[in-house]
C-alpha cells in the first residue's frame, strides 16, 4: 500500500517536473520568436518539412472523410426527407469538428513524430551540444523555427482538410446520390456562419497547432539521448498530443459553441 502511494507520489512529481520544464522551454522558444521572424529562410525550410510534406495525407484523408460524411449523412437524412440539408451537415461537421481535430491528429502523427525524432536524434548525436559549444543557442536555432512552422501550418492544413472534405461530400452527395447541387451549396451557405463556425474552427486549429508542436519539440528536446529514449519520446508525442487534441477540443467546443 505504502509502495503504491509512493509510486503515485513519484509519478506525480515527475509529471509536474516535466510540465515545468515544458513551460520553461516554451518561454525560451517564445523569447527567440522576434529574432527568428527576421530569418525567413529558416522558417521556410521548416514550413517545407512540417507543412508541405503533410499536405498529401491531409488532402487524401480530407477527401475520404468528406465522402464518408456525404454517404452516411445522406442515408440518415433521406429517412426524414431532408437530404437537401446534406451540405449543412457535411460542412458543419467538417468546419467545426472534423477539420481541426482530424487534421491535428494526422499532423501529430505525420509532422509531430518527425519533429520529435529529428530533435531527439540531434540530441543523441550531440548536435545540440555542439551548437551550444559553438555559442549558438540550440533552442532558438533549432526549436523556435520548427515551433513557428507548426503554428503557421496547422490552420492552413485544417482549412485545406475542410475544403477538400466539403468537395468530397459534394462528389458523393451531388454526384453519386443525386442531391440537388443548388440545395447542397445554398443550404450550406444559409447555415454556416463565418464567425461562429469558420472562425472558431480556425481558432481551434491554431490552438491544436501550438499544442502539438509544443509537445513534439519538448519531447524531442527532453528525450533521453539514446535510440530507445528517442523512440519512446516519439511514441509519447503521438499519444500525448492526440489526448491533448481531444481533451482541448471538448473544452474549446464547450466555450465556443
Amino acid at each position: 500500500m505504502l509502495n503504491f502511494i509512493q509510486g503515485l507520489g513519484h509519478s506525480g512529481l515527475t509529471f509536474f517536473q516535466r510540465l515545468g520544464r515544458a513551460h520553461i522551454l516554451l518561454g525560451h522558444i517564445m523569447a527567440g520568436l522576434p529574432s527568428m521572424l527576421l530569418r525567413w529562410p529558416l522558417i521556410i525550410q521548416q514550413l517545407y518539412y512540417v507543412g508541405v510534406l503533410s499536405v498529401l495525407i491531409i488532402l487524401v484523408s480530407g477527401f475520404f472523410v468528406g465522402m464518408v460524411l456525404g454517404l452516411q449523412g445522406y442515408n440518415i437524412l433521406v429517412d426524414f426527407g431532408a437530404e437537401e440539408t446534406l451540405g449543412v451537415m457535411v460542412s458543419l461537421s467538417l468546419v467545426r469538428e472534423l477539420g481541426p481535430v482530424v487534421a491535428a491528429l494526422l499532423f501529430a502523427g505525420r509532422a509531430g513524430s518527425a519533429l520529435t525524432a529529428e530533435i531527439g536524434l540531434m540530441k543523441a548525436t550531440e548536435q545540440l551540444s555542439a551548437m551550444e559549444m559553438m555559442a549558438i543557442d540550440p533552442i532558438r536555432r533549432v526549436l523556435t523555427p520548427r515551433f513557428l512552422a507548426g503554428f503557421i501550418s496547422m490552420p492552413l492544413l485544417a482549412a485545406i482538410f475542410s475544403a477538400v472534405g466539403i468537395i468530397g461530400g459534394d462528389f458523393v452527395g451531388v454526384g453519386l446520390l443525386g442531391v440537388d447541387e443548388g440545395a447542397y451549396w445554398s443550404q450550406m451557405q444559409a447555415s454556416v456562419d463565418l464567425y461562429d463556425d469558420i472562425l472558431n474552427g480556425v481558432i481551434k486549429s491554431i490552438v491544436f497547432g501550438v499544442v502539438v508542436t509544443w509537445i513534439a519539440v519538448f519531447e524531442g528536446y527532453d528525450a533521453i539521448p539514446t535510440s530507445e529514449g528517442v523512440s519512446r519520446a516519439t511514441t509519447r508525442t503521438v499519444v500525448h498530443s492526440s489526448l491533448a487534441i481531444l481533451g482541448l477540443d471538448f473544452i474549446l467546443t464547450a466555450i465556443m459553441f
Partner: peptide, 23 residues
C-alpha cells in the same frame, strides 16, 4: 513548394469564407 502550400491554405480558407459560409 512552401509558397504553393501557403497559397493552397489561403485559398481553402477563402473558399470556406466565401462559398461555404454566409459571409
Amino acid at each position: 513548394l512552401v509558397g504553393l502550400f501557403i497559397a493552397a491554405g489561403l485559398v481553402a480558407l477563402f473558399m470556406l469564407a466565401m462559398k461555404v459560409s454566409n459571409l
